[in-house]
């Protein structure tokens, strides 16, 4: 069978969703942000809620996320996305409100806003991309940097005795009464990507049901910060990140 006979509109089974704009993403080759953006956009597309979705972008590599989603969007100050989202959802409960944050934004400078939004059970969806490093500023130590991991500000490896411990903020959030759905996902294999998309879909569906905070951590890569080629970075993620940040649901509704 010839290629021309296959590549016809009626045979199309996968294309970039129109909830993403045509802008070329500025992310490094192989960066997980691109996949995660696409999954969110696909979920919004499939649920038919583009006109009802408000997204809050963070400070960090995904600071320009608003250029890639064809959604109304706001750019928060560093760490403050959950505060913006809190007000947005309370003032427009008819809209879906989504925050998108990295580890520095959500688990360091914005810890208070994160914890309190989740503890109040704000009816929002929070996407937390954890790659264990500050990508945008050039690879400095993050709250989630692993023990011994070398970064620009821990050049001899993270020394727990002087630099403190990596923070499992998702485990913390799962303890809070306001969080309804807390899960940890990854996007470096096709099966994981498909699973992650289901988790994001769940997070939106629970928001629709006014259940409280839905929190999806995605353990991701930082090829530039980790100084590894994309495929090797994903192997490193599996070998080093996942033992400390194991994948799976941390909190699921009882009557799912």
């Amino acid at each position: 069978m010839k290629r021309e006979d296959i590549v016809k509109p009626e045979n199309l089974i996968y294309k970039r969703t129109s909830v993403l704009t045509d802008n070329v993403m500025h992310y490094c080759p192989g960066c997980g942000h691109g996949v995660i953006h696409r999954l969110i956009a696909e979920v919004v597309d499939e649920m038919g809620i583009q006109d009802k979705t408000l997204i809050v972008a963070p400070v960090g590599c995904s600071v320009l996320a608003y250029n890639y989603f064809d959604l109304d969007a706001a750019e928060a100050a560093h760490g403050r996305a959950p505060a913006l989202a809190t007000a947005m959802k309370r003032l427009r409960p008819d809209q879906f409100v989504l925050t998108y944050q990295g580890d520095g934004d959500l688990a360091a400078i914005g810890t208070a806003e994160t914890i309190h939004a989740c503890n109040r059970g704000e009816n929002i969806t929070m996407i937390f991309v954890n790659n264990g490093i500050y990508g945008m500023t050039g690879g400095q130590m993050a709250p989630t940097t692993l023990e011994g991991m070398k970064t620009a500000t821990s050049p001899y490896g993270r020394d727990l005795s002087t630099m403190g411990n990596p923070l499992k903020i998702t485990e913390l959030i799962a303890q809070l009464p306001g969080s309804y759905y807390v899960t940890r996902q990854a996007v470096y294999t096709p099966a994981l990507v498909r699973k992650c998309k289901k988790a994001i879909r769940n997070a939106f569906e629970y928001q629709k049901l006014n259940k409280g905070t839905s929190f999806v951590e995605i353990v991701s890569n930082c090829n530039s910060g980790w100084k590894l080629p994309p495929v090797k970075a994903n192997q490193w993620l599996e070998e080093h990140m996942l033992p400390f940040f194991p994948l799976g649901d941390l909190k699921v509704p009882e009557n799912k």
Binding site: M1, R3, D5, I6, V7, K8, N11, L12, I13, Y14, K15, R16, T17, L20, V24, M25, Y27, P29, G30, C31, G32, H33, G34, V35, R38, V187, Y188, T189, P190, V193, R194
Partner: peptide
């Protein structure tokens, strides 16, 4: 080209959404 079964794994993994998949 002959080996492609249109599973879309490549497109699912692509961070930049540059792959369209067709299948018959």
């Amino acid at each position: 080209e002959d080996a492609c079964v249109g599973c879309a794994n490549c497109a699912v993994l692509c961070p930049d959404g540059v792959i369209e998949v067709y299948r018959v």
